[in-house]
Design a protein around this nucleic acid. Sequence first.
DNA 1: ACCGCCGGGTGCC
DNA 2: ACCGCCGGGTGCC
Length: 886
Amino acid sequence: MSWKKPKDSARGCSQYNICRGERNYSRFSSSDFSTSLGLEDFSVSDTSGTEEDTDSAVLYGTLRGSVVGLRYYTGIVNNNEMVALQREPSNPYDKNAVKVNNVNGDQVGHIKKELAAALAGIMDNKLALIEGVVPYGAKNAFTMPVQMSFWGREENKEAVLDQLKRHGFKLAPPLKECDFASKWISARAGPSYSAPVHAAVQLTPEQLKSEFDKLFEDLKEDDKTCELEGAEAVATLLLPHQKQALAWMVSRENSNDLPPFWEERSNFYYNTLTNFAEKQRPKNVIGGILADDMGLGKTLTTIALILTNFQDGKPLPVQKIPTVTPLRMTSVFSGTTSIQSVETKYSGDGPSATLIVCPLSVLSNWIDQFEQHIHQNFHVNIYVYYGSDRSRDPSFLSEQDIVLTTYNILATDYGMRGDSPLHKVTWLRIVLDEGHTIRNPNAQQTKAALNLDGHRRWVLTGTPIQNSVKDLWSLISFLKLKPFTDREWWHRTIQRPVTMGAPGGLGRLQSLIRSITLRRTKKSKIKGKPVLELPERKVLIQHITLTEEERQIYQSVKKEGKAAISRFFSEGTVLAHYADILGVLLRLRQLCCHPRLCINTSSSSFSAGDKTPEEVHEMLVNKMKLVLSSGSDEECAVCLESLTVPVITRCAHVFCRPCIFEVIRSEQPNAKCPLCRSELRAEHLVECPLEGEIDSSNEKKSDQEWISSSKINALMHALIELRRDDPTAKCLVVSQFTTFLSLIENPLKESGFAFTRLDGSMAQKKRVEAIQCFQSSQAGSPTVMLLSLKAGGVGLNLTAASRVFLMDPAWNPAAEDQCFDRCHRLGQKHSVVITKFIVKDSVEENMLKIQKKKRELAAGAFATKKPSASEIKQTKINEIKALIDL
DNA sequence: ACCGCCGGGTGCC
DNA sequence: ACCGCCGGGTGCC
């Protein structure tokens, strides 16, 4: 294989310049920041957009109208076929013009002008969504009837009815779309009862997800259970479920089935959802969604696909070893691809390059996996399209076998209209890794991805549905499934029927998903055996007793903090002092680890006092650092999710930036803090300091003489014992406090341990190095990794470790579990033992209790709806009480 | 006849 | 369009 970035083809540990100076967040705009974190859903423009809030739409009623001017257009329509109404304000004859298009987007005619005059205002002001169906008469040469349904928000109904009335129209009561056919046939069959307008069933996200998973529970002996061995070029043996996935993916790339909901009927291809028909055979998706749970090896399977179904349904050919002549040598080492091209290009014409788009956090994982899984006798050109010096030459890119890039680069390039090399190439295959990244249809990344040109299209994601069916549209659209690429048809035929609980809606969704998706969860079974047989995982709790001296410090800080917090309770100002309370708890947690951790924490500023703006700013930044670094996984009280792009208000409450901006926008001019009702102003909001700087203020004390602590002693005792029993055993030492990790470095050095470190402040390149060193099985490679709890994304693979020492408990048990999964995952050969150090009679023990409650809550009925903001507040207050023994 | 009626020309917005 | 509408041709019974 040859790596085109860096330029030489050999590859060493440190040669991926995949980080460059790109991640310079110091002057980030919010959108840069959020997209770089894959949080584009939270961008302000999205939340404030008046775009359809289609979930709350109700059916106002229906109206019969006519479509005229059929003579002049090529679009044809069948009886009962859906049509789209589209405003055409630029029409020179009538500024109210409304076009009528068929499902294919071809114009059929216009709405008659008198009616158009009534509809124009409604459509322009987005008061209602107007959908048409041509009930009959589709063969008419000049005009045809159209049955229109008006959908909108309850509060707009009056305005719409008024507007229609002014033009002499009146809506008929709702008539369910699915009743159309029968209605026209049996028009005299007695009174018609209006169908219920509102959904009978509304699915919660959890129900939806579980419905989704049920789809794949009982895979019969169909194409999804055949197995296919990887081609010779795949260096790794595939597990049974991976061979199944490979077989399925290859068959999807090579088959020529009709896409879902299409039938062949007397020389026509007929869409059963829209009743649209055409002569031309609709193209099937050459690809689909691989939605296996995290950890089942989607990356490996995809690499196997690329190598096994390389071109024209054939695997990657063996590399002919080039006859070594001086001439060739020169060419090879001059960094051009010409010689390789001669040797390895294939008879097939057309595109041969695969584009892989992934979040930055997993880019290095792809690089590793290619390195690991491509057989050394085979040659693959891989180009990492990243960094400011990336090649701008489309023909260079199309000559590669594989081009790897990130969603950000994709979106950035696409933003520079007309100058995106990625968009000038016709790809053989496009793979979107962590495909749910493009969930938001309005995000730049989504638009950029949807506009890529490629034949075979794949989406890899562990969570195809995050919250609602809406999440699926971008993915389906990316797959170029007719007619869903247009959001209107997706919405009318799938999304609304499902969310409104219309009969058959869920069924449609299921058959759609079933036909293009493969999903196995960690619990899925193949021939009675679980897909993943992971070694055992044990969690031990080791209690620590503080020394007399440590206990004294702890008790005095606790006494002081408890007094302050009691005062907040009696004054009823708990929420106003939330950051201060977290500060107290943080200090106690730090004291459980090492007395030196909390020396520097800013002396609490309980008194507001009169301060200069600079001092206020600094105080707020400090408070926010407290909230964030306390590892409490704060939720934003607006969206009830984890904080994304945190900002702090003047009243010291932390929210997601987009959320609080939305509050300010909607409540203007007198917005109030959602938590304490203080005055809220956009210009007073203070942004989050950069990740990695949070703890840096505590750094730089290493010159002091180092002293140990009870916890460190316990750790070292365990490490030394472990080394004695098995000198090659590797372990992770995990803490939320990077300063604590720094302190631990001292005894590790003293006792002669080889160790590495991975924390959030490290550059991408350093991280890759640290991970590779640690994962190496070479003699002398590090046996200990100091790991900060939150470092690294989900892709992080630390399977070399079979022991984990969790130095301090986290608020959120899920964060701990995620951390354990980094070594307890596919590839782990040993049983994993996790040791949690918990100081007796301390805040840590109380945290365990709270964790237990949270676990029970999470395991319990999902059906319970989202708690309200006030319920969350109450829970938090109770937690605080429990934590400090009040 | 400043009407009615006839029949040809014509046709979206 | 096997319509509606327009506007020119025409005109007792």
